[in-house]
């Protein structure tokens, strides 16, 4: 791929990136539009941000979404850690294939399938054992944990299998019982993967519309559900402002994570003997 093809491929890639970013840029720019008509530029203004701050419905939904996302991300990391340990450290056991399949299947399952099947499960469970009582933030959280576990398992498993068994063996050899070796050696080394997994599940939960629509109840509209019902009615400058806030927050988080990863991977040169 030298000379002749290079500029072509480069141009192609540039086009791809432009395609990915153009809508977001437009969204951000027009969130500062004075005019109510989203497509006509009427001068710079931050008034939509002010209105957003006064929109109780969106703020409440956002707060609920953040809480659900935090809880389900934590749950997904805990279960994902256990699952990764089972898959990497337990060797072969009967039912391992089923276990693996169950954990990873949500990765390639369309949202509508997960949403509807959980809705029917919750309704069926309620009619059988009376739990869960109706649909609420709880059922949304359960659904998001189920999806999140697939992602956290993949991420934590990759890190864990990278660590190898030697470190565990060394800890045991030096007198640490398994739980203590795990806490003092494995856990600190898994920390980056745990954090990354947590962040990913958090954003997935925060972003999810389809699954949440199926399993949320009347009082538990999450932010995407509220945004969706408003977007369905047409374009709104307030949503542009909200979108801008979310894009900025996410960009900051990614930047911080990137910087901290860079910091931790920086190594001094190999010392001479």
């Amino acid at each position: 791929m030298r000379s002749r093809w290079r500029p072509l491929i480069g141009g192609y890639a540039l086009f791809g990136y432009a395609f990915l970013y153009m809508p977001i840029v437009i969204l951000v720019v027009y969130s500062f539009n004075e005019s109510r008509l989203v497509t006509v530029w009427g001068g710079f203004s931050t008034k939509w941000y002010g209105e957003l701050l006064g929109n109780e419905r969106i703020l409440q939904a956002a707060w609920l979404s953040v809480r659900i996302a935090a809880v389900s991300a934590t749950g997904a990391v805990l279960l994902g850690t256990a699952a990764a340990i089972v898959l990497v450290r337990f060797g072969r056991f009967r039912g391992r294939g089923v276990f693996n399949g169950l954990l990873l299947a949500p990765l390639v399952m369309p949202d509508v399938i997960i949403g509807l099947s959980l809705l029917l499960l919750f309704v069926w469970l309620q009619s059988q054992i009376g739990w869960p009582a109706g649909r609420s933030g709880l059922t949304v959280g359960i659904a998001h944990i189920t999806v999140g576990v697939a992602y956290t398992t993949v991420m934590i498993r990759a890190r864990l299998s990278q660590l190898g068994r030697d470190l565990d063996d060394a800890a045991a050899d030096l007198g640490a019982p398994p739980w203590r070796g795990f806490v003092e050696v494995t856990l600190p080394l898994l920390a980056p993967a745990l954090a990354a997994g947590w962040l990913l599940s958090f954003t997935l939960s925060l972003d999810d519309l389809v699954v949440a629509s199926f399993v949320s109840g009347p009082g538990s509209s999450t932010l995407p559900i509220v945004v969706f019902s408003s977007v369905r009615l047409g374009v709104s400058p307030q949503i542009n402002a909200l979108a801008t806030v979310m894009v900025v927050v996410v960009a900051l988080i990614v930047l911080l994570v990137g910087l901290s990863m860079r910091q931790s991977s920086r190594r001094p040169p190999e010392g001479a003997d």
Binding site: D166, L167, D169, A170, A172, L174, V185, L189
Partner: peptide, 20 residues
């Protein structure tokens, strides 16, 4: 008797030093 209660210690081939 598990590894962590035996009166032996090991130098591993990879050394297995705790990197953190």
């Amino acid at each position: 008797i598990p590894a962590y209660r035996r009166p032996v210690n090991t130098v591993f081939q990879s050394y297995a030093l705790f990197p953190h």
